[in-house]
Amino acid sequence: MADTTNTSAPTLVAAQAAAPTLEVRNLQTHFFTRAGVVKAVNDVSFTIGRGKVLGLVGESGSGKTVTGFSIMKLIDPPGRIVGGSILFQGRDLATLSEEEMRTLRGNRIAMIFQDPMMTLNPVLRIDTQMIETVQAHEKVSDADARARARDALGMVGIPSPDERLKSYPHQFSGGMRQRVAIAIALLHRPDLIVADEPTTALDVTIQGQILAEVQKLCATTGTAMLWITHDLSVVAGLADDIAVMYAGRVVEYGDVGEVLDAPLHPYTHGLIGSVPSRNKRGVPLRQIPGMTPSLLNLPEGCSFRARCPRAAEDCIVMPTLHPWLPNRLARCHHPHLEEVESA
């Protein structure tokens, strides 16, 4: 694999100050389906320091969720991690037994899923589920566990938490279910939270409240966060760094403000141009031409080549994630450097 020769994960200066909570190096996760090998994650590297938030954005189907699941070691057959490493506080997760991994999960590492029903059990009342979660990793009395559950629900803005604890998941709206799932993830104040589009279903006032709680958690307890989303405005306000994925690879990685102000990679460029608030009302939104390449059958060279306005002959060779500028990496032969200078 020509493009996976880096030996350590790229580290941005901002993240170097503290020992990293999470280091992902050249991760590869493939699905061995009957139709062929789906290279869902093909080369993903990043580092998250204590108390830092990395925003992971990118094309729908580019492998963000599979990256999150790989970190949690929740990939089921026909999927398999086939390359790279995942270091949590310096420990390679590949060396842990399923038992050790289970202890980490839900205690030191928590995941908030795109689908809240991955966290919630439909046949159990919310209080039963939350008290069980608290008591799975700590010796706590029922009354104390209930109090913790109630506080966590209050933190994510669930009204009348005492009454709501007695409800079943189906009695909540989509957004309220997600808030319960977030509350469960916060129960143990984990060292790392992998959050997959957690506020996508929420209105902006509640989203603001949850993001404020999350910021407070990172700042006070040093929780590191991988925040997967497609909402660039949320990333802008929440994250320290941003990684942009396209077709299974990180194509741009850097300081969030710098990347959003002057993206280097043509894909990031197109993505930011499609944000509705950057477009005129009533006219079609700017969109990136063409369709996402099939992960079964990626084109030779740069995966964005067929859709890229800057593509040239040398793009037939897969570019590496290159540090073009301090704190700025891009997987592209012809990045938008001119715009960085003018920004």
């Binding site: 009454e163 902006v204 006032t205 409240q209 306000g237 403000g257 944000v275």
Partner: peptide
């Protein structure tokens, strides 16, 4: 409360007052 792409690392506003129960 609308988040804006131009915002950077800002403190998200917390809604004032208890959100009422339906």
């Amino acid at each position: 409360s609308v988040p804006r792409i131009g915002n950077r690392k800002r403190a998200f506003a917390t809604v004032k007052g208890e959100i009422p129960s339906p």
